[in-house]
Design a binder for these strands. Structure first.
Lengths: 224, 224
DNA sequence: CTCTGTATTTGAACATGTTCAAAACATCAA
DNA sequence: TTGATGTTTTGAACATGTTCAAATACAGAG
């Protein structure tokens, strides 16, 4: 039931509701914010929220979509400079974390359903496909921008693999309670270096059997 | 609010409630089963369920604990025979899947909160620690039983790593809609072989730098 | 047996995400 | 302006997980 937002006024109402929701989520947390509070803060009736958003969680999704769109220029910029794959990956992921930073904890509410690909809000769902593919494209760009030599057979799945690597990092980040999430940033730095090195290694003739094995596994996982 | 179950009658009531719940979960699914239905099926008032179980999900947890205890002999048996690490791992994980099979989908309800280590039902939570450690112990046993040569520095974290590998497989299994979950079994077979081979490779002198790097990452992740 | 305190059980009340029928509003053709 | 038609808004009603004060059952002391 995506809202049609034909008129400017409707669009405005939608924005007001979303803004009220995000504000409350940030100050009181996702779970402790009620739909009635959101509606009241936006100056509308409870039901209005459901005219524009399918559910409470869909509001977090709307935030995610918004943020994803907004950070596109930042990402393009991060990938524009020359540099190694390691640098590109680190800049790409750091850019994302920076954008999400004010709503770090909130993201956890979204990723609750990560493990169920049937759930509309799962990062693996049909519904989030468009945004996911755009995301993966950024990693493909990081590869070409850094002029990394990638074995032919690995080139196809690699962007998606990097995206999943990033997703894992984001998971860690969300529940990282260290000050300023230093643990995540340390992990990011080291793991990105490892990943970049592994990709280089993967091209060695010696590595061919291992690479084939891994690709075999990937195919099992990705073939529906 | 763990129930004290001092008397045999209370114990019986608890059992009846749990049985009613699991029966309904299996036929109607977790989400479509209401607490009122469960209470009614158990011949008890709605509130009684909460006297014995902290929440609806805690019932799934109770099932998990029960199953874990019941499968101990089966696991011991699977690890008793001689065999390679690959064989031991495969048997160990297959044994678990077999035990969980009738409630495969139900497990999904438990693992919903996997990504939040603060949630009591997360496999990483304080509350599930005892059962998790016992689980990990089984993998330590698989290593010793197969007389696998493991580098000193890897020996400590390895059982936990294998446990996480298994957890990932279980996740895949839960949402595997292929007939009889053939995809999971294929994946299990191949990935276990890969893992066993990687452990062998990890001991080579050539691999020392890579191993150190990985151990470094693990330490960042595991140090709270 | 009766009394007393504890364990168990009850069912109504509560909180909150969600649905829905009706009302209010907007647009535009005649 | 008026009526028709579609869009937006309302607020009560609903479903369901959970809490809680009160009622009941029960074990053991005297």
């Amino acid at each position: 039931m995506k809202a049609p937002m034909s008129t400017a006024k409707a669009e405005d109402t939608r924005k007001r509701i979303l803004q009220a929701a995000l504000g409350l989520f940030q100050t009181r947390g996702f779970d402790d914010t009620t739909m009635r509070e959101i509606a009241q803060a936006a100056g509308v009736a409870t039901g209005a929220a459901y005219y524009y958003f399918a559910s409470k969680e869909a509001m977090v999704m709307a935030f995610y979509e918004l943020a994803s769109r907004e950070m596109q220029p930042g990402i393009a910029e991060a990938l524009a400079e020359r540099g190694s794959l390691e640098e590109h990956l680190r800049r790409l992921i750091e850019t994302k974390l920076r954008y999400f930073e004010p709503n770090r904890v909130l993201l956890g509410a979204l990723l609750r359903h990560a493990t169920d690909p049937r759930h509309p809000l799962s990062p693996f769902s049909q519904e989030t496909r468009a945004i996911r593919e755009a995301d993966i494209e950024a990693f493909a760009l990081a590869l070409t921008a850094s002029e990394t030599r990638v074995p032919k057979d690995l080139a196809g799945p690699l962007p998606r693999l990097l995206w999943m690597f990033q997703l894992a990092l984001i998971f860690f980040w969300i529940t990282d309670h260290s000050a300023a999430q230093v643990r995540t940033h340390k992990l990011l730095e080291r793991s990105v270096r490892l990943v970049a090195n592994l990709i280089k290694l993967a091209g060695l003739p010696l590595m061919r059997p291992l690479r084939k094995t891994v690709l075999d596994l990937i195919e099992i996982v990705e073939t529906p």
